[in-house]
Amino acid sequence: SKICLVCGDEASGCHYGVVTCGSCKVFFKRAVEGQHNYLCAGRNDCIIDKIRRKNCPACRLQKCLQAGMNLGARKS
Rank of each mutant, 00 (worst) to 15 (best):
C14K: 06
A11V: 03
Y38D: 10
K25S: 11
V6S: 02
S12W: 04
T20G: 08
N70K: 15
S76K: 01
K29E: 06
L61E: 03
Q35I: 12
H15K: 14
S76P: 13
A11M: 05
G17I: 03
D45S: 07
K29I: 14
G68D: 04
M69E: 03
G13P: 04
K63L: 07
K54S: 14
C21S: 01
G17H: 04
G42C: 07
A41D: 15
D9I: 04
V18E: 04
R43L: 09
K29C: 05
A67C: 11
H15I: 05
K25T: 06
H15A: 09
I48K: 07
I3R: 03
Y16F: 09
K63I: 06
E10L: 11
I51D: 07
S12R: 13
D9S: 06
K25E: 12
Q66R: 12
D49H: 03
D9G: 09
Q35Y: 06
V26S: 15
N37C: 11
A31F: 06
G72I: 12
C14S: 11
N70M: 10
G17A: 06
G42E: 09
L39G: 10
G22N: 03
V19N: 15
Q62P: 00
Q66V: 10
C46K: 01
S23M: 07
N44D: 15
R30W: 03
C4L: 01
R30H: 15
K2H: 06
G42M: 15
S76H: 09
L65V: 07
S23W: 04
N70A: 14
R52D: 08
G13A: 06
K2V: 05
K2D: 09
V26F: 15
S23P: 14
N70G: 07
I51G: 12
C64A: 11
V18L: 09
L65F: 12
D49G: 06
K2A: 08
C59R: 01
G8S: 09
S23L: 06
A67S: 09
V6W: 02
N70Q: 12
S1V: 14
V18F: 03
H36S: 14
S76L: 12
Y16L: 06
V6M: 02
V18D: 04
R43F: 10
K75Y: 09
A67Y: 03
R43W: 08
G42D: 15
C46L: 01
Y38L: 09
S23H: 05
V6P: 01
V19G: 07
F28H: 02
C46D: 01
G22Q: 04
S1N: 14
Q62F: 04
E10R: 06
A11D: 05
N44V: 03
V32A: 14
K75I: 03
G13L: 08
